[in-house]
Design a protein around this nucleic acid. Structure first.
Length: 100
DNA sequence: CGTGTGACCTAAG
DNA sequence: ACTTAGGCCACAC
């Protein structure tokens, strides 16, 4: 948990506003490791910190990692298109470190 | 230092 | 839409 990597990932996930979602890949992008989506998943798996809204982190196709997250997201006003979140409307518009 | 594993992602068939 | 295969990253052994 003291690791910079874990710390950065947690920070990024906490930045996700309610009613918005982010994919693992997007989080990886935000922390500056565009190809570390998998490692982000590892951090989430090991994360038991309630201050980290892990339910707002979904797969690239919009499907939550766990079904229990679905109801939680719906409570925040997230609309679902079948099993997937409507990413068009709810994907977190994070501004990236570099680029542009 | 090599290997295996994982809440991943993308491309192909 | 579903299944494979390949690839990237961090971590435990």
């Amino acid at each position: 948990m003291t690791d910079a990597w874990t710390k950065d990932v947690h920070a990024a996930v906490r930045r996700i506003p309610p009613g918005r979602v982010a994919s693992y890949g997007l989080i990886a992008l935000v922390v500056g490791r565009p190809l570390a989506a998998r490692a982000v998943g590892n951090v989430m798996r090991a994360c038991r910190d309630t201050s980290v809204p892990c339910h707002r982190v979904v797969h690239a196709d919009g499907s939550p990692a766990f079904a229990r997250h679905r109801a939680r997201l719906r409570r925040e006003g997230v609309r679902f298109n079948g099993r997937r979140v409507d990413l068009r409307a709810h994907l977190w518009n994070a501004r990236l470190p570099r680029r542009v």
